[in-house]
Design a protein around this nucleic acid. Structure first.
Lengths: 139, 139
DNA sequence: CTTGAAGCTCTAGTCGCTATAGGGATTAGA
DNA sequence: TCTAATCCCTATAGCGACTAGAGCTTCAAG
C-alpha cells in the first residue's frame, strides 16, 4: 500500500541515493513522510520511477525525461513531442554506433599490429596511437 | 623552434585550457616559461600532445594513456602492456556497439509505434517508455 | 608607446549518479 | 519492554574529462 525507499529501490532496481537524487531534481514528486521523517511511497510513485528507469536505460538524457513527464501531465495534448524525443534518441544512438564502428576498425588494426615479442621502441601499437595518419578515417 | 600554448593548440587541435589541464594531470611535462611566465613548447611536446589527442579520439581513458606514456619512457621493456591496452579498448568498444544495437532495436520500435495524430493518453511512445516488458531485450 | 590579442591562475560548472560521515527511526526478536 | 540490527535521514564531496568565467598580466605589431 505504502512503502519505504528501500522497498521502492528493490522493486524498481533504482538505488536509494538515486531515488533521492531524482526527487531533488524534480523527476519524482516528494512523497509523504512518517512522523520520523522517512519517505513513504505509493504505486503511482513506483510507476513513475519505472518510467524514468526504463527511459534512462534506453539512453534518454534527464531533460528529455523531464519533458516526457511534463507532457504526460496533460492528457489531452497531442503527443508529437514524445514522438520527436524518441526519434531524436534513435538518431543519436545510430550516430554513436557509426562512430564506434569506425573506432573499432582502427583499433582492430592497431591491436593486431604488434604480434610477437617486441620492445617499446619497436612497438607498432605505440606508434599507431601516436600517428593518426595511419588511420582510414578521421574519427 | 619554440612556441606558445595558442600555437600548440592550433597545431594539434587541442584547446588551450585542455592543454593546461593535461599538464596539471601529468600527461605532458611542464614546459619552460618566458620571463613573463608564459609557456613555451617544443616539437617533442607537440608529438606527445598528438599522441594523447589521438588516443583520446580512439576512446582511451586517461589512466590508459598515462600507462602508455610511462611505458614509452622505457625503450627496452617489452610492449605487452601496450598490446593489452589496445585489446582491452577494442573489447570495450565492441561491447558498447552490441549494447547500442540493442537499444537501437527497441528505440526503432518505440519511435514508430505512434504514427498519426494521437493525444497523450493514447500515446504508444509514452506507454513504451514506461513499460520495459514490451522490450525484446534486457538492455 | 600604445593597444588589443593572447596568456596567466583559480574557481566553479557540466552529467548522472555514487560514496561517505554522522546521526535518527524502525522493526524483529528476546 | 528492551535491545540490537537494519534501515533511513541530510549534507557534502568525488567521479571523468573537460569547459567557462573572472580578473589580472604579458606579448607583439604598428
Amino acid at each position: 500500500m505504502n512503502f519505504s525507499i528501500g522497498e521502492l529501490s528493490k522493486q524498481t532496481g533504482v538505488k536509494v541515493p538515486t531515488i533521492r537524487y531524482y526527487e531533488k531534481e524534480g523527476l519524482i514528486d516528494p512523497p509523504v513522510r512518517t512522523e520520523g521523517n522517512q519517505r513513504r511511497y505509493r504505486e503511482t510513485d513506483r510507476e513513475r520511477l519505472r518510467f524514468i528507469r526504463h527511459s534512462r536505460d534506453l539512453g534518454l538524457p534527464m531533460p528529455a525525461i523531464r519533458d516526457l513527464i511534463e507532457l504526460s501531465q496533460h492528457p489531452d495534448k497531442p503527443c508529437h513531442e514524445a514522438d520527436r524525443i524518441a526519434a531524436d534518441q534513435l538518431k543519436s544512438i545510430r550516430e554513436r554506433i557509426v562512430h564506434l564502428k569506425k573506432l573499432e576498425v582502427e583499433l582492430a588494426r592497431i591491436a593486431t599490429s604488434c604480434q610477437g615479442d617486441h620492445t617499446v621502441t619497436q612497438c607498432n601499437v605505440l606508434k599507431a596511437f601516436g600517428d593518426h595518419s595511419q588511420c582510414l578515417d578521421n574519427h
